Amino acid sequence: MSDSITTHQTETHDLIASDKVEGTAVYSRDGERLGTVKHFMVDKLTGHVTYAVMSFGGFLGIGNSYHPLPWNTLSYDPAQGGYVVNLTREQLQSAPVYTEDTMPNWSDDMYSRGIDDYYRRPLDM
């Protein structure tokens, strides 16, 4: 693969290459920048993106926490050039989280269920 790949080869109206999603900003509905997409988790059997893992906080990659967000909680906003979630910073601070030192066991169904349950319930603040 050449280093001179053009945009039309990595992005269409409906599709985007994974490396272009990583690092994309995530905003609250109010326009506050909450973090960036670190990576995402793809279901091996269906090929669907299940979670976007958002990097939150820290400075220059130090002290970051990682918040797995169900993919369907994000919507792309071309005007902002990033993803928007219907969450506040405070709601994210209470959400399931991990750090480099506390990596989750993604094969534990209870872990995934905890994420899904958090984002399914009304997030009253």
Score class of each variant (00 low, 15 high):
Ile115Lys: 02
Gln91Phe: 04
Gly58Asn: 07
Pro78Lys: 08
Lys44Trp: 08
Thr99Met: 09
Asn105Leu: 10
His8Ser: 11
Pro68Gly: 03
Asp43Phe: 01
Val97Asn: 07
Trp71Met: 12
Gly61Met: 04
Ala25Asn: 05
Asp3Val: 07
Glu11Pro: 09
Asp109Val: 03
Leu45Ile: 13
Thr88Ile: 00
Tyr98Met: 00
Gly82Cys: 09
Val85Cys: 00
Lys38Ala: 15
His13Met: 09
Phe59Gln: 11
Arg29Asp: 14
Arg29Cys: 12
Asp19Ser: 14
Tyr76His: 05
His8Arg: 12
His48Arg: 15
Arg89Phe: 10
Ser107Phe: 13
Gly58Phe: 03
Trp106Cys: 08
Leu34Phe: 05
Leu45Trp: 11
Ala79Leu: 01
Ser112Asn: 14
Ser65His: 13
Glu100Val: 11
Tyr66Pro: 07
Met103Phe: 15
His48Lys: 13
Lys20Cys: 12
Phe40Cys: 09
Pro70Trp: 06
Tyr111Cys: 03
Tyr76Lys: 02
Asn64Met: 04
His13Pro: 00
Leu87Ser: 06
Val26Ser: 07
Glu90Lys: 05
Phe59Thr: 13
Glu11Leu: 07
Ser18Asp: 10
Val85Ala: 06
Gly61Gln: 04
Gly23Gln: 06
Asp116Glu: 13
Thr88Glu: 06
Asp3Leu: 14
Glu22Trp: 05
Asp108Glu: 10
Leu69Gln: 01
Val49Asp: 05
Gln91Thr: 00
Thr6Gly: 11
Thr46Pro: 05
Tyr83Leu: 11
Lys44Ser: 15
Ser18Tyr: 08
Phe56Pro: 07
Phe56Ala: 07
Leu92Cys: 07
Asn72Lys: 15
Gly47Met: 07
His13Lys: 10
Ser65Arg: 15
Thr50Tyr: 03
Ile62His: 13
Met54Arg: 09
Glu100Gln: 11
Ser18His: 01
Ala52Gly: 08
Tyr76Met: 06
Gly114Asp: 04
Gly57Arg: 04
Asn72His: 14
Asp117Ser: 10
Thr88Cys: 01
Gly114Cys: 08
Gly35Met: 02
Asp14Ala: 10
Ser65Asp: 13
Asp101Asn: 13
Trp106Pro: 02
Ile115Phe: 01
Thr7Ile: 12
Ile115Trp: 02
Val85Asp: 03
Val37Arg: 04
Asn64Trp: 06
Lys38Ile: 02
Asp30Val: 06
Asp77Phe: 02
Val53Cys: 06
Gly47Arg: 06
Gly81Pro: 09
Thr10Arg: 13
Leu74Ile: 04
Leu15Gly: 12
Thr50Arg: 10
Ile5Trp: 12
Val49Ser: 09
Leu87Gly: 01
Asp109His: 01
Val53Pro: 04
Leu69Lys: 05
Phe40Trp: 03
Glu90Arg: 07
Asp101Lys: 13
Glu22Arg: 10
Asp108Leu: 05
Gly58Glu: 04
Val37Asn: 07
Ala95Met: 02
Gly47Tyr: 03
Lys44Gln: 14
Gly82Gln: 05
Gly61Trp: 04
Gly47Glu: 01
Thr102Tyr: 02
Gln80Leu: 14
Gly23Glu: 05
Leu69Trp: 07
Ser4Val: 11
Thr102Pro: 08
Lys38Phe: 12
Leu74Tyr: 08
Glu11Gln: 09
Leu34Gln: 04
Asp109Thr: 03
Leu69Met: 08
Ser112Glu: 11
Thr73Ile: 10
His8Ile: 00
Thr24Phe: 11
Met41Glu: 15
Ile5Glu: 15
Leu87Trp: 02
Asp101Ala: 15
Leu45Gln: 14
Leu69Asn: 07
Gln80Phe: 03
